Amino acid sequence: MTAIQGSAAAVTGAASGIGRALALELSLRGCDLALADRDEAGLQAVGAEIAKASQRKVTAHRLDVGEPGQIEDFARAAITAHPALNIVINNAGVALLGQFGEIEQAQMDWLFNINFWGTVHATRAFLPQLSRQREAHIVNISSIFGIVAPPGQSAYCAAKFAVRGFSESLRHELAVAGSPVKLSVVHPGGVATNIARNARTGTGVTDNARRAQSIERFDALAKTTPAAAALRIIAGIEKNRPRILIGNDARFMDLLQRFRPATYWKPLQRRIEKAAAKVATAK
């Protein structure tokens, strides 16, 4: 296990959503923090909120995880500020709406640079530091869409499946080498964040109603709060859980995929449409 009390953690995407909730909860449990995000105002707000509730050391770092050079700079600055840093949470991510034929290659590259390569580059940048600690932990945020793959999410699913594969293989490598570094890969289901509302749209998508419908469906499934997601991730760190599923929807989809690996989409589609219809009726 990796104890939270007395640790120091680097968290990307810390200005909002799950990252913000993680920062707040980790600080309350006695963890110092190096927080990173493109949203500098959001980072300052999180830092101020933490300062009101705890005396933990918090540093804020502007970071675009799609830029490898910035990740290297962040790692150096975070380690300098927190010499005993032993937890890295690769949380930053973006979304892209559109079927494969509606998405330009440049848009897919943009998403991959953040959602997949950002995770890989940050893991590489921090791993030497983590390997020197008595106990250390990497948390890579995938998605339930790293387990199931609905239509209209080809880019996002490809990246999140890649995060899952990278994380599982690296975890096995670390175990075989007897490394003190443990690794958890996280698969959130619907969490009430702004990722869907902030999603970019494929250049080939011309129907604005489709975007609105996609957001509405996401909202219908987003039953888990960021705070609840953060609590489950932290419990996973403490108990060294290799895979962390967040939300009843994620657990259902994981089981469905196991039982029907090639034919899960039709029953899953019916469940999603039913949930969306229920929300629409309640409005």
Rank of each mutant, 00 (worst) to 15 (best):
M1C: 10
M1N: 10
T2V: 10
I4L: 05
I4E: 13
I4F: 00
G6D: 01
A9E: 10
V11M: 03
A15M: 11
A21H: 04
L26I: 11
S27K: 00
G30P: 09
C31W: 01
D32A: 14
D32Q: 12
D37R: 05
G47C: 15
A48Y: 04
I50D: 00
A53F: 15
R62W: 03
R62A: 13
D64K: 06
G66A: 05
Q70W: 07
I71K: 03
D73R: 15
F74C: 06
F74V: 04
A75M: 05
A75T: 01
A75R: 03
A77Y: 08
A77V: 07
A78Q: 12
H82M: 11
P83F: 08
L85C: 13
N90C: 08
A92V: 08
G98C: 04
F100Y: 15
G101W: 04
A106R: 15
Q107I: 11
M108C: 00
F112S: 01
F116T: 10
W117L: 05
G118I: 01
T123H: 02
L130A: 01
R132M: 13
Q133I: 02
E135S: 13
V139Q: 01
S143R: 03
S143M: 05
I144S: 08
F145P: 02
F145E: 10
V148I: 06
P150M: 09
P151W: 04
Q153K: 09
S154W: 14
Y156H: 03
A158P: 01
A159R: 00
K160R: 08
R164T: 05
F166W: 13
F166L: 11
L170N: 03
E173S: 08
A175H: 06
V176C: 08
V176R: 14
A177L: 06
K182M: 09
K182N: 06
V185F: 06
V186F: 09
P188V: 04
V191E: 01
R200G: 10
T201M: 15
G204H: 10
D207R: 09
R211E: 06
R211D: 05
I215E: 11
R217T: 06
A220M: 00
A228G: 14
A230L: 10
A230V: 14
I233R: 05
G236N: 13
N240S: 12
P242V: 01
M253I: 06
F259W: 15
P261K: 08
P261A: 00
A262C: 15
R270P: 12
R271A: 14
A276V: 09
V279R: 11
